[in-house]
Amino acid sequence: MSATEREGRWLDVRATLWSTPWLVGGLVFVLAPLVTTILLSFCQFNGMRMPAFCGLENWYALFDDSVLGLTLANTSTFALLTLGLGTVVSLATAVALHHAKVGATWWRVCMLAPTMTPLVAVGIIWRWALNGEYGLVNNCLAWFGIDGPNWLLDANWTLPSVVLISLWGVGQSSLILLIGISDVPKTLQEAAKTDGASPIAQFRLITLPMIAPLILFNLLVDMLYVWQTFAVPYIMLPGGGPGRKCYFFTMYIYDMAFRYQRFGYACALCCVELLVVLIPLFIARMLIRRLPIVPHAL
């Protein structure tokens, strides 16, 4: 074995040692619970008696559960609206920040600050801001002569309210896109400008394709978060609010496990959530592979 190989192997050993805490953590806190969840989904378990094997009973029960259908519909609608709006807003803010001439650093801090606010505080702040009578949002709408809705008490407005609140955290996505936009080579834009491309054409033909992987990355990460939305709606709209329009999938899992002691069924629901999240991830992976990539193009 040559000296270089020995050095390489030693480096591998060191790298493995450095990774050990993460690997152990992953095994104990991710893999073991995952396996346990899958096993428990085939058991009847109420958290107090020993789990009793019940075959596919929990899985069959999924098809008879109308509340599950409701939560899936709510969560899907919420995810689509949030991801769509979130992407547009984060892209718009990233472009605006990129072109900001004054106080760019402060704007970036302001964008990131909401993501550092504790979720409970976020829930309380928004509960006040969206109050139908005294809320900040309706007061602002009143300046334009708009009689704002009763955001959190009117069944037709609760879901849009939660979507609006979820935009509160787009700062992180914006910053990632901002970094991507900042890294677009100026030479390409200058060349396009010389060829007579308008700013919109430059954005559409140069910037957007170059940051497409980052947009996809943001979408995937946000989708994981969106499907796990729990704390804010749970605080603001206990039980899903009027008409249970904001009764989301994760809230249902929590209720099943900890309020109704149906851990086995809750585990089956967790597996469903895993599948629901994995399918778009696989699709995204395929999309990424099909992206026209040439190494070192940047």
Partner: peptide
């Protein structure tokens, strides 16, 4: 103009 990206 074709712009090609790297995704690592």
């Amino acid at each position: 103009m074709t712009v090609v990206l790297q995704w690592t």
